[in-house]
């Protein structure tokens, strides 16, 4: 089976082979430089400790009804997933441009969506050890879980990954169009940390910002994970929040699919595809 050339395999096998190749390539490049491995691993852990100290300095002993360590633990899982998948998936196409390979990529008959998904999943998989470190640090600094429904936790975790991937997919077109994907991706981080409730509860946001916060799938997804892991919520208790997270994710993924096609066409037509 593996002797059959890629282009002669069936649709699903072809996509699968593309996905696996993209994941493998991404992981190899990502682990090539120790500086990169270190910075990716340390950033979320240090962010967690910094915000925990900030809450200690503020004198607040509870945040969103739980201790700051537990509240931030879930927030950091969301933050890390967001950071990885948006940078990993959305920025991947822009990265091809800076490497001078975007023209070649867009000449191949592979699905752009599969390429972006591959980069996003690889970013996520590559950082699994960091998730473990964050959880260990969380327990060391006093975070305690209250889980009654493991299925609710699993679906809430899945919703965070799906939410982040969908936003990364939606932003890929913007990154190509702007020709400064890195800058746009970095600039979006603080607003998203603010609106998605990674560091402060969304209930503390001003009333007029809540609708904006709701259309970002990461917000409801993190709320669902907090409820299922810190307050013992069941699947029934978080179904509405999960529905909002998956529903808005689907919307962003659709926007990404349409915009990426449009942006690729516009960039090729205006001759800007390989401009850097």
């Amino acid at each position: 089976m593996s002797a059959v050339p890629l282009e002669f395999r069936g649709g699903l096998a072809y996509h699968w082979a593309t996905l696996v190749a993209t994941v493998r390539m991404h992981l190899e490049v990502d682990t090539l430089y120790p500086t990169n491995v270190l910075q990716q691993a340390l950033f979320p852990v240090l962010s967690y400790v910094t915000w925990r100290v900030t809450y200690t300095v503020s004198g607040r002993s509870t945040v969103g009804g739980v201790g700051p360590s537990a509240f931030l633990l879930v927030g950091m899982v969301g933050l890390l997933t967001w950071r990885l998948t948006v940078l990993g998936s959305g920025y991947s196409i822009e990265d091809e441009r800076s490497e001078g390979t975007i023209g070649a990529l867009f000449l191949t008959p592979v699905s752009r969506a599969v390429i972006i998904l591959g980069h996003g999943l690889a970013s996520f998989a590559g950082m699994l050890p960091t998730y473990a470190v964050i959880v260990i640090v969380g327990f060391l600094i006093g975070a305690r879980l209250d889980v009654t429904d493991p299925l609710a936790v699993a679906l809430a975790l899945l919703s965070i990954v799906v939410a982040s991937l969908s936003i990364g997919f939606a932003l890929a077109g913007l990154f190509i169009l702007s020709r400064r994907g890195n800058l746009v991706a970095n600039s979006l981080q603080s607003p998203i940390y603010f609106l998605a409730g990674f560091i402060v509860p969304r209930t503390e946001l001003p009333e007029w910002l809540r609708p904006l916060s709701n259309i970002l799938p990461a917000g409801p997804a993190v709320d669902a994970l907090r409820a299922s892991t810190l307050s013992g919520a069941t699947l029934g208790g978080i179904s509405h929040t999960l529905g909002l997270a998956f529903g808005t994710s689907a919307l962003w993924a659709l926007i990404g699919y349409l915009s990426l096609r449009r942006v690729e066409y516009a960039a090729k037509r205006s001759g800007q595809l390989e401009l850097y």
Binding site: W51, Y55, S58, S178, N186, S187, S190, P191, F194, E204
Partner: peptide, 30 residues
């Protein structure tokens, strides 16, 4: 030329302001 005013607005204005907004919520009442 490469980033323009948008780049300036995003990097030098938006990031610090949103971080301040988060800190203001954490330090509410202080």
């Amino acid at each position: 030329r490469t980033g323009g005013l948008l780049s300036f607005a995003l990097m030098s204005v938006a990031i610090p302001i949103f971080t301040l907004a988060i800190l203001a919520l954490v330090y509410r009442g202080r």
